[in-house]
């Protein structure tokens, strides 16, 4: 099968992540999950290219992305907990203290 049909899958996942961020108006945990989905879709992209090109550096890149994504989501959750402590809500609608 051609490389493009695999790319459809990973790009679809990426777009799902982007849509989730833009159309989600309710809570931040879902947004965190969407960011993870985006990073994983990019990972899949790297792996597809890596097998297609028979080159190892894509796999190394994807392993590193996995690690960074884990660190990123842990920081995100920590920020979320802090935000909940001060505001008592994690809804996006109330994230409007800082406006011009």
């Amino acid at each position: 099968m051609h490389c493009i049909s695999f790319l459809h899958c990973s790009l679809l996942l990426f777009l799902l992540g982007v849509w989730g961020i833009f159309f989600n108006r309710k809570n931040i945990v879902v947004m965190l999950m969407c960011i993870e989905l985006m990073l994983l879709a990019v990972n899949l992209n790297f792996l597809i290219f890596s097998t297609y090109l028979d080159d190892l550096s894509g796999q190394i890149f994807s392993l590193l992305i996995l690690t960074v994504a884990a660190a990123e989501s842990s920081i995100g959750l920590a920020l979320l907990v802090m935000y909940y402590r001060t505001r008592g809500t994690i809804s996006i609608e109330y994230m409007n203290l800082l406006k011009g």
Binding site: G17, M31, I35, M38, I75, G76, L79, R87, M95, L98
Partner: peptide, 17 residues
């Protein structure tokens, strides 16, 4: 905290792209 969270969400999105 709100600034941090906003920065995180948008920054993570941009690094994904």
């Amino acid at each position: 905290t709100e600034a941090g969270l906003k920065y995180f969400l948008l920054g993570a999105f941009s690094s994904g792209v």
